[in-house]
Deep mutational scan, measured.
Amino acid sequence: IDVRFTVNGLDVTVRVRTEEIAERVKELAKNGVDWREIQRIAEELNK
Rank of each mutant, 00 (worst) to 15 (best):
L10Y: 14
R40Y: 08
V7H: 08
R15V: 12
K47M: 15
D34F: 07
R24Y: 14
V12D: 01
V14H: 01
V3Y: 04
N8P: 03
Q39E: 10
W35Y: 13
D11A: 13
G9W: 03
N46S: 05
T13E: 07
G32N: 09
W35H: 08
N31T: 10
Q39V: 15
V12Y: 15
N8C: 07
I41L: 08
R15Y: 12
E20F: 10
E44G: 04
L28M: 13
G32K: 07
R15G: 04
I41A: 05
R40I: 09
E27M: 10
L28N: 01
A42W: 03
L10P: 01
D34T: 10
N31C: 13
D11V: 15
D2I: 13
F5M: 10
E27F: 09
V33Y: 10
V33C: 07
R36T: 14
E37K: 06
L28Y: 05
I1E: 03
A22F: 04
G9A: 04
T13L: 12
E23P: 00
K26T: 08
G32A: 08
A22K: 05
F5H: 02
E44P: 00
T13S: 13
R24K: 15
V33H: 08
E27R: 06
V7R: 04
I21Y: 03
K30D: 10
E27H: 08
D34W: 06
R40E: 08
W35M: 10
R24W: 07
V25A: 01
V33F: 09
Q39N: 07
A29Q: 07
A29T: 04
I1G: 04
K30G: 09
L10Q: 13
T18M: 02
E20C: 09
V3M: 07
V33M: 11
L45S: 03
T18L: 03
I38F: 02
R17L: 15
L45F: 06
E27T: 09
R4E: 09
I38Q: 00
I1N: 03
K30T: 11
E20M: 09
W35I: 14
A42K: 01
V14S: 01
N46D: 06
R4D: 06
V7M: 10
K26D: 03
A22S: 05
N46F: 03
A22Y: 05
G32I: 06
G9V: 02
V3F: 05
K47Q: 14
E43N: 10
R17G: 07
V14K: 00
V14Y: 06
K47I: 14
T18S: 11
A42Y: 03
I41V: 08
A29R: 05
L28I: 03
R24N: 04
A42F: 04
T18G: 04
R40F: 07
E37A: 07
G32M: 08
R17M: 15
V3Q: 01
L45W: 11
T6Y: 08
I21P: 00
E20S: 10
K30H: 11
E43F: 08
D11Y: 12
F5D: 01
N31P: 02
A29L: 13
L45V: 02
V12G: 03
T13Q: 07
G9H: 05
A42C: 05
D2R: 07
A42G: 02
E20W: 14
N46L: 02
I38L: 07
V12Q: 05
G32S: 07
E23Y: 09
T6H: 12
E44T: 07
I1S: 05
K26P: 00
V16I: 02
R17V: 15
I41N: 02
V16N: 00
N31Y: 09
D2N: 11
V25Y: 01
V16L: 03
T18E: 02
N31F: 09
V14L: 14
V3R: 01
F5N: 01
V33Q: 05
K26W: 09
R17A: 15
F5Q: 01
T18H: 04
A29H: 14
E43M: 10
R40S: 09
K26E: 06
R24T: 14
R36G: 12
R17P: 05
V33E: 06
I41E: 05
E23I: 12
D34R: 05
Q39D: 04
I41R: 04
I38W: 02
D34V: 06
V14F: 10
Q39H: 08
K30S: 12
I1A: 04
N46P: 02
L28D: 01
L28G: 01
N8S: 08
I21L: 04
V14R: 00
I1T: 06
R36A: 15
L10F: 15
D34M: 07
V16H: 00
D2T: 13
I21K: 01
V14G: 00
I1L: 11
G9T: 04
A22V: 04
L28E: 02
A29S: 06
R40H: 08
V7G: 04
K47A: 15
A29M: 12
A22I: 02
E20D: 11
V14Q: 02
R15L: 09
E20N: 07
D2V: 14
L45I: 03
E23A: 12
A22T: 01
L45N: 02
T6W: 10
T13C: 09
T18P: 01
E27K: 08
T13A: 08
R17Y: 14
A29K: 05
D2Q: 09
V7I: 12
E23T: 11
E20P: 04
L45G: 03
A29Y: 15
W35E: 05
E44F: 09
V33W: 10
L45P: 01
K30W: 07
D11G: 08
N31L: 14
T6K: 11
R40V: 09
R15F: 14
L28V: 02
V12L: 11
I21M: 05
D34P: 14
R17D: 07
E23F: 10
N8M: 09
G32P: 02
D11C: 11
R17Q: 13
E43W: 08
D11I: 15
V25H: 00
T18Q: 02
T18C: 03
V33R: 06
N46C: 03
V33K: 06
N31V: 08
K47G: 12
V3L: 13
V12S: 03
V16C: 14
I38E: 00
V3C: 05
E43C: 08
R15S: 12
E19T: 10
V16M: 02
V25F: 02
G32L: 08
R15C: 13
R17F: 15
K30P: 01
G9E: 05
R24G: 02
I1M: 09
K47R: 10
A42L: 09
L10V: 15
E23V: 10
G32E: 06
V14W: 04
E19P: 13
R36H: 13
R17I: 13
V16K: 00
L10S: 09
R15W: 15
V12E: 03
D2A: 11
